[in-house]
Amino acid sequence: METSGWRAELYRLTLALAFLALVLSSSVALAATGDANRGEQLFTGSQAMANGGSPCIACHALAGLGTAGTASYGPDLSGLYADYEAEGVAAVLESLAFPSMEAIYTNRPLTEEERLDLTAFFAQSAEKQPPASQSLAGLILLGVIIVFTLVGLSGLRRFKGARRPLVEQAKKQRGVMQ
């Protein structure tokens, strides 16, 4: 009885430890296996968030995504991972407690898998350190300036009127005669 009691005690302890180890190891393993590719798809919106939240790219810039990834409504996320590491990023993604984001994500939270994928994508992106992209607003401004210049130049060829120059010419001639 006694022996069996001790054994049972050890067994329970082992079981509890094993369970703890399992839980810990599995959470570590999940963090490590978050899919960066899927994270990128979620970030850019080519795959929808499960609860219907907006893709990050709608408001945030991130280096390495080209001109499309230069939105400036929210802060630039290029330095996010470097500044906050995996834990900080995960914490932020869990609550998203910023006034302008609450309105969107309170009722449409990110799932745990999505958070892991995004974190993995941020980690990958921080590792690569791609150069900052040309801002879309700047490109549009440049295009607008070019179009307006062309229209303005073509306006130089426009017919400027026939009668007014005749009247002015006649006035000038009269001025000379006086």
């Binding site: 073509s154 306006g155 009127g161 026939a162």
Partner: peptide, 11 residues
């Protein structure tokens, strides 16, 4: 969108 040969109203 930009016909340059139109008479002006003054003409």
């Amino acid at each position: 969108f930009h016909n340059p040969n139109l008479p002006t109203i003054d003409d």
